[in-house]
Design a protein around this nucleic acid. Structure first.
Lengths: 340, 340
DNA sequence: TTGTACGCGTTATCAA
DNA sequence: TTGATAACGCGTACAA
């Protein structure tokens, strides 16, 4: 172990120590070709000995890359933001790139301006967008106009202009509702996501298709609007469970809402999983900590983020649309058959 | 509204448009003195017209400041991280400074190295530390050695070397437990926080002091260890409620744990708030969305972060220790008197 | 395979 | 109160 110096070392010092030119050190740093092994080793050792770290500022200023990617993530749920950041960061760590992340508010009128400001100031190598910003035309147009690289996570529709990473929300929702039906449920409530998210409509479609395939007629009173957060899930469930012929199962479009529905069920004295099955999407890994366990579709938010960042950093050229398979995770809450 | 140009504008272009020198533009940007109002207005208008944003990279390279602060925040809970980021960011926005934030893992052996790397690469103007990193000697020593500015949030002990922002955890816990006692409770369970956080011990002390002042003898079986997360709260409550003479109230050291305790209570058929009162710290704003409402100490995490960042940015010189008053929030869960 | 010279866009220094 | 010029630490273009 070399004690790290109190002052920052520069590339020049490394060059002197390794008895090579500055440019050669730069070559090693950037993994360029045409370097003899001997020189490379010498340089690497000097870097280690001096605990040298290149200055982001200087690299960004001199080169074409800034070695930074920006995560533009709105905040439906802190868990969601956290998972996104973790996924992006993991990939950045491997690529030796810095993540720039900060909570954004989709409701601010000058969101586009804020993002533009970020771009001008930091000159990121690329951006990761999450819903619903993926679907904001003014933002997308601006990125396009500036010829910036970006990847969309779960966009409303796939574009030929940029890469996207997503899961098949419709199929996933359908699979989960079909499972509830297979347990014997016929009256299944639906709590929708926030209307400004495209995934909300996709998941509703999946719900409806599952009913349709099972020959169950759609009862629109069984569909309530949510906002992807705990509170709206609790309210939505209250609305559903106040119906005369109330549902025997509830499908919530996110885990925050499913957890809210659970809370309401408890409040009403419905002992899940005896009298009510609750299922939902595990967008935010919240289902992991909920008791009793929910039946969920595991949407690996972190993996979406990780994959998207990989696409951004490692495949400069082609536009790709990558679908990540969802995984249906069956848990205890709905494992008990309806009415024993 | 000026249509923002597709390409980034430079300080040089601004200077030409305002018919002044580059340096003068720089003066305006940095709020330096000795500028005539006339010139200042001309420059400001040119900046607006060109939608000019200074390059972070160039500023950082040329100047002594990088206009960036780093938030070194561990992840006891995604909500906590989110609140911290929001608070720091709000202050950064006002000061026109960029926040660098990314989840850290307190368990990684090379945490100090990771932070050092961040510092070397980004050269931040200052750092915000959160527990338990505030109490890691190797990290603190490194910061001290490099003469970096940093502010600690809720550190284990106040140091004369750096500023700190905190609430009186002992007094807050004491107040909350005293309130439970005033409701008639005598057997009050305690679920502690993660042992590596200093706040855990502080809150336990508050719990004990409240009992002591009420003349209630401490029963160590009533104190269980938690880890500040939902799961450990649920487990801790299960342990407490399995006792022969089980507690009539539970005080959890965080809201995640309080929510966990709630879940356990429901599972056991204890209808909160009939047979059991649950109270806790609202570290992460989770209590806001829990049903039934918890009685909490609102620890304004976001405000702690906001204040700490303000200290860092606006008071370069003196070391200050700032205490933020806590707030006791009475909610339904414990509002009902014991046994009606 | 390696080195030299220049420039990136801003701030700092010093002179006017 | 303003301006000219030299850094800042690295990547790029080109030469050796």
């Amino acid at each position: 172990m070399t004690p790290s110096p109190a002052r920052k070392s520069t590339i020049k010092q490394v060059a002197e120590r390794a008895a090579v030119s500055i440019k050669t050190v730069s070559r090693v740093l950037n993994n360029e070709r045409y370097i003899s092994d001997d020189v490379r080793h010498r340089v690497e050792q000097a870097i280690r000995e001096l605990a040298f770290q290149p200055s982001q500022a200087a690299r960004a200023l001199a080169g074409k890359r800034s070695h930074q990617v920006a995560l533009i993530c709105d905040n439906p749920s802190p868990y969601y933001v956290y998972e996104m950041q973790s996924g992006v960061r993991a990939q950045c760590l491997e690529a030796n790139v810095r993540m720039i992340a900060q909570p954004y508010d989709r409701n601010s009128v000058d969101l586009r301006h804020q993002i533009e400001q970020l771009i001008d100031q930091t000159n990121p190598d690329g951006l990761i967008l999450t819903p619903p910003i993926t679907d904001f035309d003014d933002v997308i147009d601006m990125l396009q106009q500036r010829r910036l690289k970006y990847v969309c996570i779960s966009p409303a529709k796939l574009s030929t202009k940029c890469s996207a990473v997503f899961i098949d929300n419709l199929a996933a929702a359908q699979a989960l509702v079909a499972y509830l039906i297979s347990l014997g449920h016929r009256r299944i409530g639906f709590i929708g996501g926030h209307p400004s998210y495209a995934t909300s409509a996709q998941r509703r479609s999946g719900y409806r298709r599952a009913l349709e395939l099972a020959g169950i007629e759609l009862d629109t009173r069984m569909e309530v609007q949510g906002e992807y957060d705990f509170r709206s899930g609790a309210d939505g469930a209250a609305q559903l469970l106040a119906l005369g012929d109330r549902p025997t199962a509830i499908f919530a479009s996110s885990d925050d809402m499913a957890a809210g529905a659970l809370a309401t069920a408890h409040r009403l004295g419905l002992n899940v999983p005896g009298q009510l099955s609750i299922a939902g999407f595990d967008d935010t890994a919240l289902a992991e900590v909920v008791w009793p366990p929910l039946t969920t579709i595991r949407q690996p938010t972190r993996e979406l983020a990780y994959t998207a960042t990989g696409l951004l950093l490692n495949r400069p050229e082609p536009v790709e649309h990558l679908e990540i398979p969802f995984e249906l995770i069956l848990r205890q809450s709905t494992a008990a058959r309806l009415n024993g």
